[in-house]
Amino acid sequence: MGFIPTVELAIALSIIYAAAMAVWPPEKGHGDLKAFAITPGIGLLHGFGFSFMLHQILRVDAPNVWHSLLAFNVGVEAGQVMIVLLVWPLVLLLRKQPGRIWVNSRAVVAACASLVALVWVVERAEFFL
């Protein structure tokens, strides 16, 4: 059992967990503390995944490694900002809709993310068989 496949499996499982929390949020009070405790762990897992990918892309002994690392991080952050700017107006619109439209739309997005992550889980679980 290797470290990298274990981290990749844990990343996929964390996506499924986050999707479940979007559909079934924990109770107020206890859920806030639980999210506060779990969020850094999920971030660390995803950071490990990025570091493995970067290690494959960049040569550690390359003279421009800092430029490449900075460009990669700026690119990731810019991509995240662009996604938020594109999706946020839709989120605001859906939250204002009557009935269960907001809850159902959140469930659809969570189900799609879970399905993709489930494929990743199956792919990574094959390593352990």
Rank of each mutant, 00 (worst) to 15 (best):
R106D: 03
F50Q: 04
L90F: 15
P5D: 07
M21Q: 13
V23F: 09
E77N: 02
V91P: 00
W88D: 02
I4S: 04
D32P: 02
K28H: 08
L94Y: 07
E8R: 12
A12S: 12
V81R: 05
E77Y: 08
V74K: 00
R106P: 01
E27W: 12
L33C: 03
W120A: 05
L86M: 10
G75T: 05
K96S: 13
G2P: 13
F127V: 06
V81N: 00
V7E: 06
A111W: 11
P63S: 13
V109W: 12
L58G: 04
Q80W: 14
V108D: 03
V87Y: 11
L92V: 05
L70W: 14
K96I: 09
G79S: 06
R95H: 09
A10V: 07
P89Q: 05
H55L: 10
G47I: 07
M21T: 07
A117N: 04
F128L: 06
W102K: 02
V7H: 02
M53F: 14
P63R: 08
I4L: 04
A19G: 06
A107E: 05
A107N: 06
L94W: 09
L13A: 11
L93G: 01
G99K: 09
L90T: 08
G43W: 11
I42Q: 02
G49V: 04
I57H: 05
V87G: 01
R95Y: 12
P63K: 09
A18H: 08
A78W: 13
W66K: 07
V91W: 07
P40I: 04
V121H: 06
N73F: 15
L58P: 00
H55Y: 14
E123N: 08
